[in-house]
Design a protein around this nucleic acid. Structure first.
Length: 572
RNA sequence: GGUGGGAUAGCUCAGCUGGUUAGAGCGCAGGACUCAUAAUCCUGAGGUCCCCGGUUCGAUUCCGGGUCCCACUACCA
């Protein structure tokens, strides 16, 4: 039994995430966590909301709330929406909670003790009317290069030039539109990443063989270009206060740590929250000197996050010179697009997690988003594709199979697992299919190839339909009830097996199936050793046991739905 | 501009350390079955594997060049 620590990239607090976010981090992390648990591993699956930063403050202002109220409310919303998708986090924390404050301040202290933090002065744009310093992107003005009048402070959208906000002509605040802005000197803490360059490269070198190319190429790109010293504090009030050895740091009373510094630390902080709430031992997962040396740590994220997880966060960890667990495997995803374009809130294009659950149960989305996960490249979502995938895979191939077998067992065999007959060539064919397909399925999960895992799962379900067509117990029944009994007994065992292998991707449906068949918790394992195909696997349910016909598992998506949803959510 | 990824059947995607007829699902056409949610099963049609060169006995696969799409490019996350 292995010990596996799994984290999903932290969803930002400013509103419910869309399906692309779900598909690229939280969902595959959950599928993997569920697979690992079913395979018998000890799993700790951690996530949290990322709550600091200017966007959170602005969103709170817009909502007419304090930022603390806003974050508390949005955290609960995101937590509930995640539960609606059956995301099985062991803990879903908050980066604004106390453990993360303590840890963030601790890391800053030890980094400074190790000579990796400098206090430097820089020039920032201050908006007098907004009473706040403005992040680069919230300053707009005329581009000094092309004279475009709505260039952002970080980059001109018209000519693409990278800018420093103090270069802008006639700058104004994009928050309020006020032109009453000025450039002020402000002091900040800088993390001396330049000093950590070699150590981080050695770390990446050591891990590169376990990382996909998408991950390593991004990491090496940053290293090859050379790390720069980064400011890790901001002139804001909402965030982790800047302290030094437990006391407010002089001159930093109105500053907080930068969100990108504290957010990844919340992976640890959220684990501490879990420990405090459950009595668990968090150090056993994070401190290699306290039992975490045998932990495999797996991170899930969209590709935009890779640099921060392969380079920036390791700088923090390695720079502390303390025995913290570092990432072992990193699974990065491309983007889910909407009809080939972007998800867009403002243009009402795309579906957000809460709205998706109003249309259909979580399993429908989980299946589609896993079977079409953007693993190797960006993937397009369309309602038509969604409809055909759900209808065919879930309703026709799986749902109908479960229904046809259990109903026949109820009608002809008194709802019992039939006893008679002996397996023959068709059962041998089925056992042989499983003997090749089940190991392939396990291999795909181990490799975190979720798209292929879904395809193999479906192929196994389809093989069940093929088997029952060959065995044709309804025909056999006319001449030999025993012959029919073999087919239905095998079919019922397949139903149970199909439920077992469905657990990682469509857990709610899997549970319905397994409950109807009376499969006890202990017999739902996905461990390779428990999936040895053969006659025994096709005769595992106790003969004579009473089974139930499960409620209809899925409902088909109709053309009318597609028309309706296209109107409501855009697309087409 | 830089870096990386992608371009394969009508659609969404596999695959190819170079080797006889390039695969899956959906969609489409025909057939079978009738236990089941008009579900299932079988068969078939359908591809200049982006373009141009090169290496090779042989290239969808390797190399060079080109075209198009996408992401990242360090303080928005």
């Amino acid at each position: 039994m292995a010990r596996i620590l799994i984290t999903s990239a932290l969803p930002y607090i400013n509103g419910v995430k869309h399906l692309g976010n779900l598909a690229g981090s939280q969902l595959p992390a959950d599928v993997y966590a569920r697979y690992c648990r079913a395979a018998g591993h000890e799993v700790l699956f951690i996530c949290a909301t990322d709550e600091h930063g200017t966007p959170a403050e602005l969103a709170a202002i817009e909502a007419g709330q304090t930022v603390a109220e806003y974050c508390a409310e949005q955290h609960d919303i995101q937590k509930n929406v995640g539960a609606g998708f059956s995301l099985s986090f062991d803990w879903f924390g908050r980066s604004s909670n106390e453990p993360n404050r303590r840890l963030t301040q601790h890391f800053a202290d030890v980094l400074e003790d190790n000579g990796l933090i400098d206090e430097r002065s820089s020039k920032q744009v201050y908006s007098v009317d907004d009473k706040r310093f403005l992040p680069d992107r919230y300053v707009e003005g005329t581009c000094p290069n092309c004279r475009f009048e709505k260039a952002r402070g970080d980059q001109c959208d018209n000519c693409g030039t990278l800018l420093d906000p103090i270069q802008l002509i006639n700058p104004y605040s994009s928050v309020s539109g006020s032109r009453n802005v000025e450039i002020r000197d402000t002091r900040h803490l800088y993390l001396l990443q330049t000093k950590m360059q070699d150590q981080v490269r050695a770390f990446v070198d050591a891990r590169a063989k376990d990382w996909p190319q998408l991950t390593t190429s991004i990491a090496y790109k940053w290293l090859d270009e050379g790390l720069i010293d980064r400011s890790i504090t901001r002139d804001l009030s909402w965030g982790v206060p800047v302290t030094r050895n437990g006391k407010p740091r002089p001159g930093f009373e109105n500053k907080v740590f930068y969100v990108w510094f504290d957010a990844p630390i919340e992976y640890i902080g959220s684990t501490v929250e879990w420990a405090e709430a459950t009595g668990g031992n968090w150090e056993r997962w994070w401190r290699t000197d306290k039992g975490a040396d045998d932990v495999t740590y797996v991170e899930f994220m969209g590709k935009d996050n890779v640099a921060f997880h392969t380079v920036s966060f390791p700088v923090t960890i390695l720079g502390s010179k303390e025995p913290w667990k570092l990432v072992d495997k990193l699974k990065a995803f491309n983007w889910l697009n909407w009809y080939g374009g972007k998800f867009s809130t403002s243009q009402k294009r795309g579906v957000f997690m809460d709205k998706a659950l109003e249309l259909l149960p979580g399993d429908y989305w989980r299946w589609y988003l896993t079977a079409n996960a953007p693993e190797s490249s960006d993937t397009a979502f369309t309602w038509e594709h969604f409809k055909s995938t759900v209808n065919s895979d879930l309703n026709d191939v799986l749902g109908n199979f479960v229904n046809r077998i259990t109903k026949y067992a109820a009608a002809k065999f008194d709802s019992k697992v039939p006893e008679g007959g002996k397996p023959g060539e068709h059962e041998a064919w089925m056992a042989n299919e499983l003997a090749t397909r089940l190991p392939a399925l396990i291999a795909h999960y181990e490799a975190m190839e979720f798209r292929k895992a879904a395809a193999e799962t479906r192929a196994i379900w389809a093989a069940g339909n093929e088997y029952i067509t060959k065995a044709a117990p309804w025909t056999a029944y006319k001449t030999s009830v025993d012959q029919a009994a073999v087919g239905i007994r095998t079919g019922l065992n397949l139903v149970a097996l199909f439920g077992v292998i469905a657990q990682p991707i469509i857990p709610d449906t899997a549970t319905k199936i397994l409950e109807a068949l009376g499969v006890p918790e202990g017999n739902r394992s996905l461990a390779a050793s428990k999936l040895v195909a053969g006659d025994a696997m096709l005769d595992a349910l106790p003969r004579g046991m009473t089974i139930a016909v499960p409620p209809q598992l899925f409902t088909k998506i109709e053309d009318a739905h597609v028309v309706d949803w296209t109107q409501r959510f855009g697309g087409g």
